[in-house]
Nucleic acid binder design. Structure first.
Lengths: 153, 153
DNA sequence: TTAAAATATATCGTATACGATATATTTATT
DNA sequence: AATAAATATATCGTATACGATATATTTTAA
């Protein structure tokens, strides 16, 4: 067995574990708000800029519509956001924060900041880690966008 | 909105995206072998050391038994591994590679090495990224293991 | 030496995530 | 203007992932 194929030597496995661990961590933190991590991502996006189209949200949180749509619908059911058809383009759906979601922003983000403070040192100090991951993500995105062009992969 | 709460400033979001991108990449590469990434992880573990207990596999690939068991069962269905009850401990199940899995190791790992060569530079050169992620994972694991001890979180 | 605690799997309900497909609407082309 | 191509959502099937619970077996303790 080639050394680079040992599980513990693989970057993708490290990323895989980190994502699962983050999901676990956020699950506990967000549970009191009856939110999951992807649902929280959508709220974060809308807190930055309200009234986004599903398409725009999809790009912002990097999820396909097949994944995102059920998540948005959950948020609608739970009273965090509303959907309405755009008047400009009757295909497009505008997602907006409810009053509840607007009011809870401060509370939720404060809570996150408190609970994730253990990671904060690492997160805040380590712009380096984040920017290396960012490079990695750009590379991976490019690779994945070359779908069908198998000669490049 | 606090700057650190912008989506693009969050480490966890970067990790989340990287994991999804890796999953997409491996989905394409592994598809010809009728394998998914978690299924491939199990094979990697067994190629390192065959005949592991479900428990040991669970620790090696960092997945709970609720997640892992169906994955192993899929591998059994597709003829990659077999399960047999341990004679030492009748609760424990030993998972072993089939001949097919043993024979295909070289082929599959070669293919991965080829197809992921675009990332290789980054992966091989950047022990730094991997080891920072490793620290992150240790921290996150610790946090997640303090389950129930809310005074610490 | 039994009853209790611990351990190893298995199963279930909920929520992603993806790709493939379907539908409605808009834009581009003849 | 009528049709074709493109776009924005929606839905579906498959496969994770988790926590909670159930079951069987082993170990520990009373």
């Amino acid at each position: 067995m080639n050394k680079s194929f040992k599980l513990d030597n693989q970057l993708c496995f490290e990323v895989y574990k980190a994502a699962n661990q983050f999901a676990k961590l956020y699950r506990r933190i967000l549970e009191p708000f009856d939110l999951t991590y992807p649902q929280y991502l959508v709220l974060l996006a809308l807190w930055e800029k309200d009234q986004l189209l599903v398409k725009q949200l999809s790009e912002k949180v990097c999820l396909g519509i097949g994944t995102l749509n059920p998540i948005i619908n959950k948020l609608v059911d739970k009273g965090w956001v509303t959907k309405k058809v755009s008047t400009q383009d009757k295909r497009a759906i505008i997602v907006s924060l409810t009053e509840k979601a607007q009011l809870q922003e401060t509370l939720i983000t404060k809570e996150i900041l408190n609970k994730v403070s253990e990671c904060e040192t690492l997160i805040v100090q380590d712009g380096a880690l984040k920017s290396r991951l960012n490079e990695l993500n750009e590379l991976l995105t490019q690779l994945n966008e070359m779908e069908g062009k198998d000669e490049y992969l």
